[in-house]
Design a protein around this nucleic acid. Structure first.
Lengths: 107, 107
DNA sequence: CCTTTTTATCGTAAATCGACGATAGACGAT
DNA sequence: ATCGTCTATCGTCGATTTACGATAAAAAGG
């Protein structure tokens, strides 16, 4: 039993918002990464972006290092291992039906 | 630009609850997979479990095939490709600092 | 010291989520 | 046709989330 459902759910929750994904993409592609740049890029209020950054930091997905009056944010990809491990586990059984054949479909 | 942030966020949101992760683990390990078994396993009210199943189905993560009065649920791992692709992308740059060296730490 | 810049926090309002019981619908069996 | 079983939906309630403006806190620079 590798990682707890709560742990994985916390990570998934942190990723479950477009603005936060946008921030992560930004951190991936931007050499400078102060909060101000992030605010400009996502187009939300500064306080809202700060809250998204707090959520990502609380989940361990990013780190923030104080650099003078600013904060330099960076990705911490290894934090996502519990989530990726779980998803990989789901893919393991290639494809065997669970019920006896001969059903109608739904969706 | 492979997948949209909204699409990925929807998948992450569907995974962002321990009960739903529990259901997915159950579907991975259980040969029979009718809703009733799931209700017993997660220990929540039938209506609550049905709602979790609806969310997973809406996200495409599971499928439900009607089998008489029951519904047979099964995993659909390929639905998670947008999410796994995104997370894999985050891991690509091994580790280069984004700011000039010489900062204090936060977290 | 005071000002400027940058980030975090507070308070609040609207929206969404999670859980439940009650009810309705679908199906096989009697 | 009716009954029993299984699942989905409805209505509701409390908790959480998201967003904002306003305000406070920290640090560099004049």
């Amino acid at each position: 039993m590798p990682y707890s459902d709560n742990e994985i759910a916390e990570l998934a929750k942190a990723l479950a918002h477009p603005a936060r994904l946008r921030i992560l993409r930004l951190l991936l592609s931007t050499p400078g990464c102060m909060g101000g740049d992030i605010v400009d890029a996502v187009g939300l209020a500064q306080s809202t972006v700060s809250e998204h950054l707090r959520i990502l930091r609380a989940a361990g997905i990013i780190t923030g290092e104080i650099d003078g009056p600013r904060v330099c944010y960076a990705l911490n990809p290894s934090s996502l291992i519990p989530l990726t491990t779980f998803v990989a586990t789901l893919k393991s059984p290639p494809g065997d039906a669970c019920c006896v054949p001969g059903q109608k479909e739904t969706t």
